[in-house]
Design a binder for these strands. Structure first.
Ligand SMILES: NC(=O)c1ccc[n+]([C@@H]2O[C@H](COP(=O)([O-])OP(=O)(O)OC[C@H]3O[C@@H](n4cnc5c(N)ncnc54)[C@H](O)[C@@H]3O)[C@@H](O)[C@H]2O)c1
Ligand SMILES: NC(=O)c1ccc[n+]([C@@H]2O[C@H](COP(=O)([O-])OP(=O)(O)OC[C@H]3O[C@@H](n4cnc5c(N)ncnc54)[C@H](O)[C@@H]3O)[C@@H](O)[C@H]2O)c1
Lengths: 219, 219
DNA sequence: CGGAAGTCGTTAAAGATTTCACATACTTCA
DNA sequence: TGAAGTATGTGAAATCTTTAACGACTTCCG
């Protein structure tokens, strides 16, 4: 358990999986070296930001050369724990849940949805995307030591399920419901609020007109 | 077209739809007034941040009282253009696209997916969630003056479709593919990268251990 | 009516993130 | 080998965001 890198800015941490994915692409394409400028074009992040991000991990590149793709990739593989798979549970096998199960974040990922739960009797016992669907009543019993959950139940059920997940020892929840759930401070919740993302995009289009000099940006 | 409020911080703008949703909830529950502290508990945003956010729009509350729910709601309804519906197109009726069509962001939303496109002959002509699916070849012809698109095609097709959308006059794209697409600077792209969100959550769990004093936070 | 309690709006401070700009050091090629 | 070119890593500045703190005003209640 190395807790020595707690000092990496959160904004940087959120970009690491993105860098990793594109480095993987480059590697697959057989590229041997890459500059922060090239990477910048690919991931749409300012090149100075990329260099700054990398620099938190020490001197990964070479002046006048750039970065060695293979080296950088293997460095991030370790940093992002790509070698060990994090097991994930999904609660709520409806529209969204089914989409996620079918996809299962298979490509260059260190995560795998291993078990799903639903309340609808008709779904219990079936498999979706190769993942078995269990009854929500068996949550505590079958969750085992899984520490991450994806929440795609109706928002009215969200807080109740979250409480049970917490009791069952979960550490992190990726919450797709519009409900803002309450959890103890030692549990991490990331909200992904798709309706809000759409509304926010519309708001920005109306109120933040882009002119020719602006550059589109992210998240 | 009022461009007078371009000065509202982006961080604030992203929270507006969230505030709006919870104000709607309160209103439905028949609540007449609300304090920044109460709202803070509900949306999990610091109460000082809420007051600061609201203050960009002027003095919306009353000292010693809080905010009048009805008034605040109607103010945000105007500000977020809740009275006019923004028409949206969805490209790629696969796992994710189908989920979105079935959901269609119906609740308290000013957006509506009006048309969908896919390349798969079997889907053309069908309806999903009440939305007709057209052939992607007819994109330019049938898009009309729709200005926002949701992109849920395979990542290999993303850039090509984006180029066509731009040519067809789109203003904003909500991109769910892992591809970082390039568009002219007068088009706005928001990336929602679900695989990265999951990986980032796992990374944070490993490297940013929460202790009892921390508070969970948001995107 | 008057004092206690409550809550906003805002100033100022702190914190986080991005961006600029350049000295430095490596690479390349003749 | 040496000169020209390239691209890093980082100090410093700029920008953006959050948080603390409190004066001013309102409500509430005895
Ligand atoms: N589908 C979308 O595009 C979309 C977009 C934005 C937000 N959301 C949110 O995501 C969530 C899921 O959306 P959806 O469209 O997949 O809904 P859905 O109704 O299709 O699926 C919900 C699933 O949860 C199951 N469920 C209900 N109560 C449960 C419980 N107590 N325990 C376990 N399972 C239970 C249901 O049987 C159902 O299968 C909702 O909160 C929705 O607001 C969805
Ligand atoms: N499903 C998920 O949970 C998930 C998670 C993260 C990211 N994504 C991304 O979202 C995107 C969609 O994922 P999905 O699971 O729905 O994929 P999918 O394969 O189920 O759906 C893609 C759809 O796009 C259609 N399509 C293909 N080429 C097209 C073209 N040129 N024009 C129009 N339509 C075309 C296909 O016919 C198909 O219906 C992918 O880029 C994927 O990487 C999906």
């Amino acid at each position: 358990m190395d807790i020595e890198q707690t000092k990496i800015p959160q904004a940087t941490a959120k970009r690491l999986p993105l860098y990793y994915r594109f480095l993987n692409n480059l590697h697959t394409q057989g590229k041997l070296r890459v500059s922060s400028k090239e990477l910048s074009d690919a991931v749409k992040v300012d090149s100075a930001t990329i260099r700054r991000d990398f620099s938190y991990f020490g001197a990964l590149g070479k002046k006048g050369y750039g970065y060695n793709v293979e080296y950088l990739l293997s460095f991030f593989r370790k940093t992002l724990d790509q070698d060990e798979t994090t097991r994930v549970a999904l609660i709520g096998v409806g529209n969204l849940g089914t989409a996620f199960l079918n996809y299962n974040f298979t490509k260059n990922n260190n995560t795998k949805i291993e078990i799903a739960f639903d309340a609808n009797e008709e779904r219990i016992g079936s498999e979706v995307g190769g993942v078995g669907v269990e009854h929500i009543d068996d949550l505590e019993e079958k969750l085992g030591d899984i520490s991450v959950a994806i929440l795609t139940v109706p928002s009215s059920a969200a807080q109740g399920i979250a409480d049970r997940l917490v009791k069952a020892g979960i550490s992190g929840i990726l919450n797709f419901t519009p409900a803002r759930i309450s959890v103890p401070s030692n549990v991490r919740v990331h909200h992904i609020d798709l309706a809000i993302e759409l509304q926010a995009l519309v708001y920005f289009l109306k109120h933040y007109p882009l002119n020719e000099d602006d550059v589109e940006e992210d998240q």
